[in-house]
Design a protein around this nucleic acid. Structure first.
Lengths: 105, 105
DNA sequence: GCATCATTTGCATATTTTGCCAATTGTACA
DNA sequence: TGTACAATTGGCAAAATATGCAAATGATGC
């Protein structure tokens, strides 16, 4: 694995490394949303939200589409959500994967 | 998904969000390694390497074990590597998951 | 105890990330 | 054309991260 690939992948993880951005991805996992909808209970400034969405777009985790006044975002990488579930299933150390359960036993 | 869980998960992604740490995880995917071995061609100061390992340990992605003078690190969460492979398989935007191939078509 | 080797910690500095406010762009509609 | 609304961008300060050097810790063996 060369340094460039590692950097690219780290870039994706960086995009995932923020609670708000994770939340946004989970919301988009349920379907397309416009910025105002995503802002609903985000608790941050609209400008801040926009920057987070831009970051997700740059790593191709989401894509956007304009429809009239609104811009709709959609999820591009469902596999991300699967991995998040795996993490969510972690209780304490280790992860939910079978191999690891064995490792920790 | 509550804010605390999101933060915990973001924490894990943060740990993954660095090329060197990803490289370390990949190396550990092949088996236990002591710090000196990992330092071999890392290109960073030993102290820096140590800090990265500490960070990985804090998020329970790896664990360590002392044997005489050496400290061996091992991978705790193989599912991480699977996800990294998924990312590595991305060619341009999107991801290697089937659903996404469809989405992008 | 003392010297040595493997690894970690303290500290200072450089870089990156985050978040708000204000200003701007893009669209719709009167 | 002008106004209103949705969303993004510029600018800047605060917080978090990354890194190397030097000093400290822990274990070994003389």
């Amino acid at each position: 694995m060369d340094i460039a690939s590692l950097q690219n992948q780290a870039q994706v993880f960086k995009a995932l490394a923020h609670p708000l951005r994770l939340k946004l991805l989970l919301q988009l996992g349920e379907g397309e949303r416009c910025v105002a909808e995503l802002a609903q209970d985000s608790g941050v400034d609209l400008s801040t939200l926009s920057r987070h969405l831009t970051l997700l777009k740059q790593t191709a985790l989401v894509a956007d589409r304009r429809e009239g006044k609104w811009i709709y975002y959609r999820l591009l990488a469902p596999c991300v959500l699967e991995f998040v579930s795996c993490l969510a299933a972690r209780s304490g150390p280790g992860c939910a994967c079978e191999e690891v359960k064995h490792e920790l036993a």
